[in-house]
């Protein structure tokens, strides 16, 4: 909780201190976990809109098919993350996401959080909160969704409650997903990191200085896949 990301904190994912070049940000497995989760979550949001946004459902109809897609995409949604736990790099990044340092609180409070003054680690506090919210939301939506779809034996009041939670949280999920896309569209290098797996060192020094320092061997090094 309290360790500083640059001092002794975050776990390393590989050897190789270097002074310049390109850093490995996401492994193949991590990129596919992200991709599959994104597609499934997108399907859930899209089919939800087709089911419940009046003009759109009038346009699309075919309720039975749309509902089936929504239910099965929702049930499959946790699978990529669960499979991801087989990857060591994924598990290490989950640990990084889970750890909230004092500098993360400072980052959330600071209006100049992108000035590079704060020793932001591999993930900034916003990314950590986004990941935690998404995991929590997937679990809550799964639970309430299963209750709505297969909970015929349960008391009706619980199913009404599940519907209410599912409906309102859907708006939260849509808002956070749109926010995530908005942040991504503002930073092509961050997108490149998720698309190809690697990012230029100078970008890391600017956006994630703590992580960049760590990979440069000041402390615990991270993998460097290429030198330029």
């Amino acid at each position: 909780m309290s360790r500083h990301p640059t001092s002794s904190g975050e776990p390393a994912s590989g050897p190789g201190p270097t002074r310049s070049g390109t850093l490995l940000r996401f492994t193949f497995a991590e990129r596919w976990v992200h991709r599959c989760t994104a597609v499934l979550l997108g399907l859930c949001l899209l089919t939800a809109a087709m089911l419940y946004v009046g003009p759109l459902s009038e346009l699309v109809g075919r309720r039975t098919v749309v509902r089936a897609v929504h239910v099965y995409a929702g049930i499959a949604l946790p699978v990529p993350v669960i499979v991801g736990y087989l990857s060591r790099a994924f598990r290490q990044d989950v640990r990084r996401m889970n750890r909230f340092a004092p500098s993360d609180w400072a980052w959330l409070r600071d209006r100049q959080r992108r000035s590079g003054r704060l020793p932001v680690g591999k993930f900034n506090a916003g990314q950590k909160l986004n990941a935690s919210f998404t995991i929590g939301a997937i679990l809550v939506m799964l639970g309430t969704g299963l209750l709505m779809r297969y909970g015929h034996a349960w008391p009706l009041s619980l199913r009404t409650g599940a519907t209410l939670v599912h409906d309102w949280l859907a708006y939260g999920v849509a808002a956070v997903a749109l926010g995530h896309l908005w942040m991504a569209q503002r930073d092509p290098v961050a997108r490149q990191g998720m698309r190809t797996g690697s990012v230029p060192l100078e970008w890391a020094r600017r956006e994630h200085p703590g992580w960049a320092a760590e990979t440069q061997g000041e402390d615990q090094p991270e993998t460097v896949i290429r030198r330029s």
Binding site: F133, G136, A137, L139, V140, G143, T144, L147, L156, S157, L158, T160, G161, A162, T163, L164, V165, W168, L169
Partner: peptide
């Protein structure tokens, strides 16, 4: 926290 809130919402949601 989200799981807890979700459970409370399911129980009191009616």
């Amino acid at each position: 926290g989200m799981l807890g809130l979700g459970a409370v919402g399911v129980v009191t949601g009616r």
